[in-house]
């Protein structure tokens, strides 16, 4: 027991590094929320593009819609199939040399947020798509029969219902994203895990890693409880009960 306490719970060893670790935690939170914002916007756009159908539109519009759908599907397939780490490293080593003014000056933080946003947009697109497809056809028929356009129907009728239904899977994805931010330590973003590893290699003690673990749990545990709460609430609303009948 003594060794375990010394190795993982030695306050004296972690004290000098508490500053960098907390700063790393703050970075983790910033990356998570920024990437989530972009990924949600991107994912929603991709899901809507993928769902677009044209019944009687003019020919140019049909072609445009077809192209938009093809782009969305290709994007989603591509980024769902690539490991986040690969995308992060690839962008980090290639963006500075692409000659695009804004990208060239982007720091590691920006590159990391961009990479995670790109990858998670694909995941979130699939979740939004499931939500959109779960809205009954009758809802669209009712909206269109009242004279709403396809866009109005999507914005006012379909999406509000779709988003509500996918809150639990979205929050799961949010938790996974927060953990994937630790991949940014590979491109010198000192988020919480990276900061803890640096501290560990300097102090030759694992307590900084314990500190990072605690940081994460402080963040994720309330979220996981919240997801469970939402799932339970949805089940009560839809009239479902416990799976086991006594």
């Amino acid at each position: 027991m003594g060794t375990i306490r010394e190795l993982f719970f030695s306050w004296d060893d972690v004290r000098p590094y508490i500053g960098p670790i907390l700063h790393g935690f703050w970075l983790t939170i910033k990356v998570t929320f920024t990437a989530l914002l972009f990924a949600a916007a991107g994912g929603m756009t991709l899901a809507v593009l993928r769902q677009t159908r044209t019944g009687r539109a003019s020919r140019p519009r049909r072609v445009l819609t077809w192209i938009a759908r093809a782009v969305a599907v290709t994007y989603i397939d591509l980024f769902r199939g690539l490991p986040a780490l690969l995308v992060i490293v690839l962008l980090y080593v290639s963006l500075p040399f692409m000659g695009v003014p804004y990208f060239s000056g982007m720091g590691a933080f920006g590159v990391g947020v961009l990479a995670l946003s790109l990858v998670y947009a694909a995941y979130l697109a699939e979740i939004f798509r499931a939500g959109i497809e779960s809205v009954e056809r009758g809802q669209v028929e009712a909206a269109r029969s009242l004279g709403m356009s396809g866009g109005q129907t999507m914005r006012r009728i379909v999406l509000p219902q779709a988003v509500r239904r996918v809150v639990p899977p979205l929050m799961n994805e949010f938790i996974i994203l927060s953990k994937d931010t630790s991949l940014l330590s590979t491109i010198a973003v000192s988020e919480v895990v990276g900061a803890a590893r640096d501290a560990q290699s300097l102090s030759l003690n694992s307590t900084p890693l314990t500190a990072a673990a605690i940081c994460y749990l402080v963040f994720t545990l309330p979220l996981t409880r919240l997801v469970d709460h939402f799932i339970e609430r949805d089940r009560r609303r839809s009239g479902g009960g416990p799976v086991v009948i006594p």
Binding site: G138, Q139, E141, A142, R144, S145, L146, G147, S149, I157
Partner: peptide, 17 residues
């Protein structure tokens, strides 16, 4: 859309929002 809004439709399954 404009022409549809001149006709009201009531469905078997209500389809309220």
């Amino acid at each position: 859309n404009a022409l549809r809004s001149r006709m009201g439709m009531v469905f078997q399954s209500f389809n309220l929002f």
